[in-house]
Each structure stands twice: as structure tokens, then as C-alpha cells.
Simulated scan of single mutants.
Amino acid sequence: MKKLITIMLIGTFSLSYAQSNYYNDYRRSITDVNWQNVISELVLSATQANQIYALNDRYRDYNSWNRVYVNHPDRWRNDRYVELERILGRDKYIKFKNRYYKGQNPVAVYNRNKNNDKRYKHMGKKSKVYKYKHGNGHHKK
């Protein structure tokens, strides 16, 4: 019984941890862009600007976001950028994408970062195999 409870708690914790990572990506997709600059650079109408601000304010906190994306937390990427493309129009969306995502699909950018845990990135350079293969190790004669 104790093992079952422990497994359930671990599963719940890891699911909520994964969910919060997706939510953090969602928030960064809003905060990493200076939307006032986007609006002025792309010469957007007042209606388009208001729609972008409404899109950015759609989920003000984790709970409101989680109610929508609890079963498919990675779906936010596609939903957000399809909506953004609808607001901007195809041509202005491509300009936005080229400026802020170097021409890459923003969905792919956030998907690529999903499994790229920076906490462990430095570990490869410290391993003996890495040093041997890359010539960074000190070989004693």
C-alpha cells in the first residue's frame, strides 16, 4: 500500500513538474518578445494590437492555462501561433517569425527546448570519453 501511494505521489509530482515546464515556455513566448516593438515594426492596426494583447492575457496564471491544456500541455504552441498568424496575416506573421525566431517555426523552437535540460548540459564536457574524443584531456606520457 505504501509503495502504491509513493508511486502515485511521484507520478503526480512529475506530471505537475512537466506541466509547469510547458507553462513556463508559454509565459516566455509572451515575455521574451517586446510586443510594442512588434506592433510598431509591422505597422499593425489598433484592432490587431488589441487582439495580440488579448491573446497574451488569455491565461494570466497557471491554473487558467492548466484548465485548458491539462491533457495536452504541448498543444499551447500550435494554438498560440495559429492564432497569432490569424491576427497578423500571413505576410506579417512571416516577418515576425523571421525577426524573432530566425525564420524557424516557433512551435519547433519551443519543442526543441522541451527536452534540452540545461542543468545537465555541462556534464558531457567533464567526462573522460568527451575529453578523449575531443582532444581536451591531458594525456600523461
Rank of each mutant, 00 (worst) to 15 (best):
D117W: 10
S45E: 14
R27A: 04
R99T: 12
D117M: 07
P106T: 02
D91Q: 12
N115G: 14
R80H: 06
I39M: 09
F13K: 06
W65M: 01
P73M: 02
S40N: 07
N50V: 05
I52T: 06
N63C: 09
T31K: 08
I30R: 00
F13C: 15
L84F: 02
V109Y: 05
V129N: 11
Q104S: 12
Y22G: 04
N24G: 08
Y120G: 07
G137V: 06
L4F: 10
T31A: 09
Q36W: 08
T12Y: 14
G103T: 02
R58D: 02
Q51N: 10
G124R: 12
Y22I: 03
V68G: 00
V68A: 03
A108F: 11
K3S: 12
A54H: 07
Y132I: 12
K92E: 04
K121P: 05
H72T: 12
D57S: 13
D79M: 06
N63E: 13
K118P: 13
H122Y: 11
N34Q: 04
K141F: 07
Y101D: 01
N78W: 14
S14W: 10
G135I: 06
Q104W: 12
S127R: 15
I39D: 02
L9Q: 08
Y132F: 15
V82F: 06
Y23P: 00
W76G: 01
Y132S: 06
Y110M: 07
Y130V: 09
L88Y: 00
Q48G: 05
R90Q: 15
F96P: 01
V109F: 06
R77Q: 13
K3F: 08
T31N: 14
Y132V: 08
S64E: 07
I30C: 01
S29Q: 02
V70Y: 14
Y53I: 07
T12P: 03
Y132H: 09
I52G: 01
L4K: 10
L15T: 14
S16W: 11
Y26F: 04
I7P: 04
G124F: 14
R67E: 10
D74N: 09
D117K: 10
D74E: 11
H139S: 13
G89E: 01
K126A: 11
G103F: 04
A108W: 13
I39T: 05
A108E: 15
M8E: 12
G89H: 03
N63V: 11
K118H: 11
G89C: 03
I7K: 15
K121H: 14
A49N: 13
W35Q: 01
Y22R: 03
R75V: 04
K128L: 13
Y132Q: 08
K97C: 06
H72G: 10
L4M: 11
D57W: 01
D91G: 12
H139P: 02
H138D: 09
K141M: 06
R90S: 14
S64Q: 07
H134E: 07
P73H: 01
G89M: 03
Y101H: 05
N21L: 15
Q48E: 10
L84Y: 01
Y81E: 02
V43I: 14
Q51M: 06
M8F: 12
V43F: 11
D91T: 13
N98M: 04
Y132C: 04
K125W: 11
Q36K: 15
Q48Y: 03
N37E: 09
